[in-house]
């Protein structure tokens, strides 16, 4: 992982407060656990039916019946619980899930999220993403600031089919930390080495700057 990405992951890990119930989306979000102290009090949820996700295991030590929602072989910790898919999403929809960190194709300045379908190219189904994005108490996105072609992913409006409407509160990227406010995107922090001009050019919507010095991460 590039230096900018690992700093993004480390910064996003500070979203997780003691005592939370948290679902980490597949990909980059699952890596934030590497930045939490071993004794940090948090309950990680996996939508295939597990609370209390323990460390990932190599194949030779894995339990064939114990995976996370991304298919990684994980383990239990003292206090873990297994349950079926109805119970798993009851937890998500009923307000028990404090935080979800999700990936994104596009985020709009009103907090709309598109992360499940690129018509004609990629339509694998949303799995549990719609419920996570629509019902977690706080929805945070982790993504590269631009796509592979260099196009902004933070936009005035999403062009792709939505996962959830107006639910994203904050975005962590390799370039910045951006809040979604009633007035649109607001820059919170800039990655080391990124200028104001660069972040404006890489963002596809107006971006409010903080008063005074911009904090760095």
């Amino acid at each position: 992982m590039s230096d900018a990405r690992s700093r993004m992951v480390a910064r996003a890990a500070r979203e997780i407060a003691p005592g939370m119930v948290v679902n980490l989306g597949i990909g980059l979000p699952t890596k934030v656990v590497n930045h939490l102290p071993a004794d940090f009090p948090v309950c990680l949820h996996s939508e295939n039916g597990l609370t209390g996700i323990g460390p990932t295991l190599p194949p030779e030590r894995a339990d064939r019946n114990l995976i996370d929602a991304g298919g990684a072989y994980v383990s239990t910790i003292p206090g873990s619980a297994f349950f079926d898919s109805a119970v798993s999403f009851a937890l998500v929809r009923s307000g028990r899930l404090d935080l979800t960190l999700l990936g994104a194709f596009e985020v709009a300045q009103n907090g709309d999220l598109a992360n499940w379908k690129i018509p004609g190219k990629f339509s694998p189904g949303a799995g549990g993403a719609i419920e996570l994005a629509q019902k977690a108490r706080r929805v945070v996105v982790m993504t590269t600031h631009c796509d592979r072609k260099g196009n902004p992913k933070l936009l005035e409006t999403c062009s792709l089919p939505l996962t959830a409407k107006a639910r994203v509160a904050r975005i962590y990227t390799d370039m910045a930390v951006v809040d979604v406010t009633a007035q649109g995107f607001a820059l919170v922090e800039l990655a080391e080495g990124i200028s104001e001009t660069e972040i404006r050019e890489a963002t596809g919507a107006p971006l409010a700057l903080p008063q005074g010095d911009i904090p760095r991460f």
Binding site: D84, F89, V92, A126, G128, E131, Q134
Partner: peptide
């Protein structure tokens, strides 16, 4: 395609002899 937890609830409703569920998901 069906949202994952809604698929679970549709099946649960089927198994519980119910006709449908209501959801904003």
């Amino acid at each position: 395609f069906c949202a994952q937890g809604i698929l679970a609830e549709r099946i649960r409703a089927g198994g519980a002899g119910l006709g449908a569920i209501l959801t904003d998901i």
